[in-house]
Design a protein around this nucleic acid. Sequence first.
DNA 1: CGAATCTCAGGCGAACTGATATGC
DNA 2: CGCATATCAGTTGGCCTGAGATTC
Lengths: 144, 144
Amino acid sequence: MTTGRDIARGLRTAYMLMHRQTQSLLAGYGFTAVQYVLLALLKIEDGITQQELTRRASSDPNTVRATLLLLERHGMVVRRSHKTDRRAWRILLTDKGRRTYSKLSAALKPLQDALLSSFNAEEADTLVANLNHIVEAMRRWEQG
Amino acid sequence: MTTGRDIARGLRTAYMLMHRQTQSLLAGYGFTAVQYVLLALLKIEDGITQQELTRRASSDPNTVRATLLLLERHGMVVRRSHKTDRRAWRILLTDKGRRTYSKLSAALKPLQDALLSSFNAEEADTLVANLNHIVEAMRRWEQG
DNA sequence: CGAATCTCAGGCGAACTGATATGC
DNA sequence: CGCATATCAGTTGGCCTGAGATTC
């Protein structure tokens, strides 16, 4: 019988192995995991705040700030002041950031194909949906 | 349509949120994630080598060594020399280690129940099986 | 000899804590 | 006022690389 502990174990092992391979691929281009994650999130939606980036990346404000400063120095992003909330920054991808994301994304493609290779379309849908259920359960736990 | 990237994202987000909650619960007892993972692995099978522990924990030899030294100082494990291979150590749980594992495991139970709560028995089985498929795919990738 | 197991030193990415300035 | 956003300094856990000693 499957327990919550089995899920926790499986999640940890699967993530660890994937993460290590991802890191190793990105390192070949001089990038780290968090840098890639932030670029990917900005590709999905540009102009969001640091706080929103932090939440979506499941990271923390300090790490996000340090990473953004680095990405800014390398011309990948720009930080513009928010129009209505003068405490906040809006983060925007530059063209260079967009090109870099495409390059890194292509480099990771074979690994992501390997992730998908064990599943047919329906199984893959179910897996992602179930992972999202875990995310929701953990967010509820965070508050309760 | 679900892509490998969707799986990677879901896996990362789900793991990160779970890991943070786990760490926070363990910290209340003065333990870290790796310490708990090693105790849990030894609970499953006692007397395995450091190398085997490293592999099962998806960790690295240095972290495992440092963690075992700490656990040994606290009387949780003992390291006995291997009978036939004098390079290797066999790691064994002490009674105190066993009791400690039970305590930590009980502390994590509510969180693990929350992980399980979104699923019925069949869905949970499928999820764990699918996570294992990812593990296998990543291990194949490691070598190929 | 090469290969495997463990040890050791050093570095680093990334998370955490706690405090502070500023604007809502 | 409390609350939210971001910044700053310092610490830590856990992973990495690269070297070595020893034994298979």
